[in-house]
């Protein structure tokens, strides 16, 4: 029943972007963790999780992201999140996830923040 998530990793200027397309639920755990480990193995210091706006995210999916936060803190990595709908931005704030990952509307905005530019 759950839409299988498609996770891909790409490099941008000083940032590694992990694109998530599909449901972020308990079924996404392996794919998200593999992508994160792959990015870390390549030395990523700034990692953007880029969500597709209308996808389904539940508390199990949020727990997976908290697990990533735990690892990222050990590795002194900066996490950023983009593409979230206003609703899921609210949920992420509600559970406290935004203490550990800054939210931006788009990947472009996140890149501008990391690289000290003003977003267009």
């Amino acid at each position: 029943m759950s839409e299988e998530i498609q996770v891909s990793v790409r490099g941008e200027e000083n940032v590694t972007v992990i694109d998530l397309v599909g449901d972020v639920t308990t079924f996404a755990e392996e794919a998200i963790n593999q992508a994160y480990q792959s990015a870390s193995a390549d030395g990523a210091k700034n990692i953007v999780f880029n969500f597709r706006e209308n996808d389904y995210i539940n508390s199990a999916g949020i727990a997976i992201l908290i697990g990533v936060v735990t690892e990222a803190r050990k590795r002194d990595q900066k996490l950023l999140m983009t593409g979230l709908s206003a609703h899921f931005q609210k949920i992420f704030r509600m559970v406290g996830l935004t203490q550990y990952a800054d939210l931006y509307p788009t990947v472009t905005d996140a890149l501008a923040s990391v690289n000290g530019e003003t977003a267009a």
Binding site: G67, V69, T70, G96
Partner: peptide, 17 residues
Amino acid sequence: PDIDGMVEGKRRLGGMG
């Protein structure tokens, strides 16, 4: 939810629903 506890490994992940 005690997200600080989860991040520090003192609490199990989850229990937010």
